[in-house]
């Protein structure tokens, strides 16, 4: 079903939802966009070309989470009960929603689902807003998505200027807009035009034909050393990435808790083994891992790229390493070179 939501009614709508669920909307705090609980008078930040600085994956996979507590004296374990109330995330960008879809292939598999992820997913309604004006760092169309990709979104909104064109894809999404007037053919037509225009603004950042095979072939290339030369080895690209999901389980012995923290393949200690051996001893192997995971290994388990083109890593890399340029360089590296090394 499609509806028309006049912008002047948005506040009223959010107010209504806030009675039944926790509503998160993008707002500016500390100078950048963040998902924060909606409150009366909250100023929404929906027309920025780029998305929130911190990816919304932490709604489902918190950066630090206590899995269990233990009492060493009594040899007792206790798992804290998951108490998650219904939530609505309003204004999530299509790339970030697509990332949630990708992460579902990791955490919501039929045979081995992650209960923490599952519980949060079930309680969370995702309402996306498409991007009329993608930023220069965006490249969603190059990785098989688009500025209006509705992946796992319950609802997708298209900004028509005065109003939003609302497309509901799930029952629970539809229920939220049920009292709105239906959109007319004119709205739908206008939305279509906006979608096409937005996609047209994005030029292909790289070609993906045969990319996986090529990357696999240049696994031993010296190209990775070139990237590693300037790479600092910090965790910005992976922590800000909406699809990076690596975690480390740590026993916080001082407070008798087992905690799950995000981890990143860009850290030396990520792959460091207890023996002292490190299978990824230098930044070259680590930068390679990041690229290979997204553009090769993901295809093996999910048949999709593990990148949604949100551009956060491009924007915030302190040394200006641009994943698009890295892929272009990788694509231009002849596969024969590998044997020379």
């Amino acid at each position: 079903m499609t509806y028309r939501l006049p912008k002047k009614d948005l506040d009223q709508t959010l107010r209504g939802w806030a009675n039944q669920a926790e509503v998160f909307v993008p707002q500016k705090r500390e100078g950048y966009a963040q998902f924060l609980p909606w409150e009366a008078g909250a100023e929404l930040l929906l027309d920025e070309p780029h998305n929130t600085r911190f990816p919304p994956k932490d709604f489902f996979l918190p950066q630090s989470e206590t899995l269990l507590t233990y009492n060493r004296k009594l040899s007792q374990l206790e798992m804290p009960a998951l108490q998650i109330s219904p939530r609505i995330i309003f204004g999530i960008r299509p790339c970030d929603a697509r990332a949630v879809a990708l992460l579902d292939t990791v955490f919501a598999t039929a045979d081995n689902p992650d209960p923490y992820w599952q519980a949060r997913r079930e309680q969370t309604i995702l309402i996306g807003v498409g991007c009329n004006q993608p930023a220069t760092t965006c490249f969603c169309t190059s990785v098989g998505s688009s500025p209006f990709d509705h992946a796992v979104l319950d609802v997708l909104l298209t900004d028509l200027g005065e109003a939003y064109f609302v497309e509901a894809f799930t029952e629970r999404g539809e229920a939220l807009f049920a009292n709105l007037a239906s959109a007319d053919a004119n709205d739908a037509e206008q939305a279509d035009k906006i979608k096409q225009q937005a996609s047209a603004l994005l030029e292909p950042a790289f070609t993906t034909d045969n990319l996986k095979d090529h990357l696999d072939q240049i696994f031993d290339s010296s190209l990775w050393n070139e990237f590693a030369q300037s790479c600092l080895g910090c965790g910005i690209c992976t922590f800000l990435c909406p699809t990076c999901f690596c975690f480390d389980i740590v026993d916080e012995a001082q407070r008798d808790e087992r905690v799950r923290n995000w981890d990143t393949c860009m850290f030396r200690v990520y792959s460091l083994e207890a023996s002292g051996h490190n299978p990824r001893p230098s930044r070259a192997e680590r930068t390679r891992q990041r690229l290979m995971h997204k553009f090769s290994y993901w295809l093996e388990h999910a048949d999709q790229f593990g990148c949604t083109g949100c551009g956060r890593c491009v924007r915030y890399c302190p040394v200006g390493l641009d994943i698009r340029a890295m892929i272009r360089k990788a694509a231009a590296t002849p596969s024969e070179v590998m044997h020379a090394n």
Partner: peptide, 12 residues
């Protein structure tokens, strides 16, 4: 202090 963190991170 190194007290237990809130269950479920920033958003719950």
């Amino acid at each position: 202090t190194r007290a237990p963190i809130a269950m479920g991170g920033a958003h719950d």
